[in-house]
Design a protein around this nucleic acid. Structure first.
Lengths: 335, 335
DNA sequence: GAACTTTATGCAAACGTTTGCAATAGGGTG
DNA sequence: CACCCTATTGCAAACGTTTGCATAAAGTTC
């Protein structure tokens, strides 16, 4: 059933030309007469010929592969449960393919400590997109210093010598806080984990807006693992212990917001009458929850494209800078 | 900053041995004296040496890569929005890594029509896991016949000559229907797309249970695209046109169920008093929605492991058969 | 101490591309 | 017709591993 794999030399023989001619023909090299080129390409199609990528990579010193490294703190595990991550990866995938590259899906487990060695020296990929700065950025920095082409999805305000693409988290937090206050909130609460780079910025924006409004000096924070489960439990616990001492929630992600909302609903706290809720990300569920969730949308499509184009620019040797994506407040029923 | 990449020959020179000895040492070949082996491995670590995967693959005719091909019908696009897909891919990823393989994330767009040629002949991967049978299975069959090592995530009842791993969808549908009826439903409704292989089986199980219960001969079906948005609109539309002529919903996925629930809640149809709802998958949102969603859980962790181990077994030349995963009904508030 | 085994290492070919350079042929120019 | 230029093709080396086979050194046996 399985005839012997055709190699370039075989194809060349079939066409009655040399291997080099066949190679050039397949790469549309104008050195080869147009007629010959077309004939060989046709022949290749007929025989379902495909180049041996391993050989090609060895010779070219290029893989045409981009690795996506999902960088989760093993402790807090924003486990890969969050649908937002999927959105990001999936949009990166699209952008990568559009550029004719393939996507190696990796993680801290496979890459070990020496990312440069693993991906670049190991000729597994030409460059890496790291998703999530996480709490400790040492490995990212090491890889960057070693010269690994690299773009990070994170908070672009971070002072770092590598390229970062991400939303304007500070502004997002600010907008969320202002929105809550405009709806009459006097005691809004931040639900999340400020030590995390991106989330920290959201918290900063949130606090800045509140303080500068003169509303209060105290900027309430409920620190939790960033999962809907943890949010649910934390709000539940808080309601039991402190009662309802807040009238607004800015959750660091939609999943967290949804977990919080469940706890509220179970205790008959009305949304948005008693508590206004704002999330972050705008995952599909935000629109489909009831009440639907007001949230700060991150433009993952643009993110994917920017991440990839900046990485490719680096591969071309260009100097590229971090950049910040616009975010938009999507007003829905929860506020 | 970037010293020249060390190759095996350089490492060997540093160690004062030949290239072949170095190669064998790194692969822990007992031909080499233990002492030498350790010395070289130590040296490799010190210099952050890593093998050139391209060269290695070329020589070995093996990539140590498994491709995951997300197979979405471009029409119905169970777009990659569904969090359940993420769960599956992520669990496959884990299992793949545990076996020392890497994961190439691909899709119908990149792979083109000739999957065997692209992945296998192209030496991009040693085998492929296809996620989603989709509506048309011609390409899968072609690849399988061409001898591509392959495992499909789909419905194991499908009569096919390739290996399938998946949940017992028929039983899942049956259990869901029985559960609804046990809660007193007289007119349950199936919400989904029966032409899709896996979903079709769920529908069959659903109908079989209903018919054999003697409840009714008519087995209501509302055919929709499998997105929460479509579900929301369909239920909305139905309520407006037909009124509430059903008292139970079995949705083909949790996302669909959640979309339906939103429509119900908006029209003040009580869940579960007026309408009982059962979903499928058990995504994180099922537990966190309000009311929480009764659903048929698919064991994605086991799925990932089975998919990978069956694929690797094929690579070893073993004969492997399809297999079916147990599903469990998770009873929550929506029923 | 000659013959033979065992242990440890090195030589060189092979995997399938790509590409600099050389080579050939055909056509134009002076 | 000698010369050069252009268009097209082929030769052969190189990319960095792995591995069958040869080799060398050391130990064993009669």
């Amino acid at each position: 059933m399985q005839q012997k794999k055709l190699k370039l030399a075989d194809l060349a023989k079939l066409a009655g030309v040399s291997t080099s001619t066949a190679s050039r023909a397949l790469n549309d090299n104008p050195l080869i007469k147009l007629e010959t080129r077309e004939r060989i390409q046709q022949l290749a199609k007929e025989h379902n010929f495909s180049l041996n990528a391993a050989a090609s990579r060895l010779r070219l010193q290029k893989t045409k592969v981009i690795a996506v490294l999902i960088n989760l703190d093993s402790e807090t595990e924003q486990s890969i449960d969050d649908p937002f991550l999927l959105k990001v990866v999936s949009d990166i995938n699209l952008a990568v393919n559009r550029q004719g590259y393939e996507l190696l899906l990796s993680n801290s487990f496979m890459a070990g400590e020496d990312w440069h060695g693993y991906f670049i020296d190991g000729r597994r990929a030409d460059g890496v997109i790291v998703v999530g700065q996480g709490k400790q950025q040492a490995l990212i920095e090491a890889a960057s210093r070693a010269g690994m082409p690299l773009v990070v999805w994170g908070d672009p305000k971070t002072k770092a010598d590598y390229v970062i693409v991400g939303s304007d988290n500070f502004l997002g937090g600010k907008i969320a806080a202002e929105h809550l206050m405009s709806k009459g909130c006097k005691a809004p609460l931040f639900l999340g984990e400020p030590e995390h780079a991106e989330l920290g910025e959201r918290y900063n924006g949130f606090c800045t807006a509140i303080k500068s409004s003169g509303l209060t000096e105290r900027c309430q924070l409920l620190k939790i693992d960033i999962t809907s489960q943890a949010a649910y439990e934390a709000i539940n616990h808080k309601l039991r212990n402190d009662g309802l001492d807040f009238d607004g929630i800015f959750a660091c992600s939609d999943m967290v917001a949804l977990g919080a909302m469940k706890a509220l609903k179970e205790r008959y706290v009305s949304i948005p009458n008693d508590v206004h809720v704002v999330g972050f990300d705008d995952i599909a569920m935000a629109d489909i929850s009831f009440p639907s969730l007001t949230t700060v949308r991150q433009d993952t499509k643009q993110a994917g494209e920017l991440l990839v184009s900046k990485l490719l620019a680096q591969l071309e040797g260009e100097q590229v800078a971090s950049s910040q994506l616009e975010i938009t407040l999507i007003e829905r029923q929860s506020s």
